[in-house]
Design a protein around this nucleic acid. Structure first.
Lengths: 185, 185
DNA sequence: CTCGAAACGGATAGATCATCCGCAACGGGA
DNA sequence: TCCCGTTGCGGATGATCTATCCGTTTCGAG
């Protein structure tokens, strides 16, 4: 982690800002408002997080790390099919928990190099997981990692439109749809 | 259509505004900017469209009418399964064409009574189409019209994240996933 | 303790939103 | 055709929000 050491007051401010910010809707962060609530000056917020996106990234950092963990665990699972589907399930859960994750993952304007590195590992692992599942015949072949990741974002979007109860049913439809087509009666 | 007759100058302004507005991103309409481009005063824009949502509704009006048409045609189709899947395909196309349609369909704060009425007909028809397809055994039973409409919005979202070429593949995955599950080898 | 560097705060310039009201244009009736 | 009440128009304006800049304060190494 290339994390420059902060002065004690700076570290305190940063923590207070993050603490306050995580209680806000990720899609509508007002830095001014957050400064007031955190009891710091606006300038302080803008110094720590020059753009709103930088703040969103910081808020998503722990979720992103969890996603990296998940990728490693899944690749270590010898069963390609179940590793793949449980990866999708957990990734969806993480995206639903962290409302800012989707934009961070999709954005190509990363503020933090740590975030960029983590995203690359996630993408690379996901690609490997998908190929493995395809070779095992568990997933249809006409599908790229990019398309599938967009589809996960789409499912996330759909669940957000309804209630959290929709998560598992919609995921089932997705998983069912990802299986290779077979002849039917 | 409960459409109050407009004075000639009012009708002209309204048209110019709509004409200009449809060239803008639906998610980021600046009424001030539109007024300037349309060569009318800001007040004029706000009188015709008190809120941004009212303008988005007006912009989507023709697409919504097309959607009503589609519903009627689909219900008239005797083949429940193919009526259902071609309905989904066309609805997705319409939503992709009209970037504001999704929010208009999902919002429950309709400004125009025409829009409200049309939405009710669309929802009702969609429900009937779905039930019919389920009774014909073409679609799994554990699925409500609301959830499915959210899923369509999710697919739209996914296609927008990628390119228009993703539309058909992703739709195939959805349709495949909607079929009742069968035993496999 | 001293001092240079780092961080803080908040005034403020700039941008955008949405309202309000005096003025202009329309069009039905005489 | 002209009159005049009604409807619509325009854009100045106040309110709100964003983001920067710089004088002041705090930190901590020596």
């Amino acid at each position: 982690m290339a994390m420059k050491v902060l002065r004690s007051d700076a570290a305190r401010s940063r923590e207070r800002i993050l603490e306050v910010a995580c209680a806000h809707d990720r899609g509508d962060l007002r830095l001014n408002e957050i400064a007031r609530e955190a009891g710091v000056g606006v300038g302080t917020v803008y110094r720590h997080f020059p753009t709103v996106h930088a703040l969103v990234e910081a808020l998503s950092m722990t979720t992103i790390e969890r996603m990296v963990e998940l990728s490693r665990r899944s690749l270590a699972d010898p069963d390609a099919g179940s590793a793949f589907s449980s990866y999708l399930r957990t990734a969806l859960e993480l995206q639903l928990e962290d409302g800012g994750l989707q934009v961070v993952l999709l954005s190509d304007a990363d503020e933090s190099p740590d975030v960029r590195a983590a995203k690359q590992e996630i993408l690379h692992s996901f690609d490997a997981l998908l190929r493995r599942a395809q070779q095992a015949g568990a997933v249809r072949d006409d599908l790229t990692a990019e398309r599938l990741s967009h589809l996960i974002c789409g499912i996330e979007h759909a669940v957000r439109l309804g209630s959290a109860d929709d998560r598992e049913p919609l995921l089932q439809i997705l998983l069912n749809g990802l299986r290779p087509e077979v002849a039917r009666s």
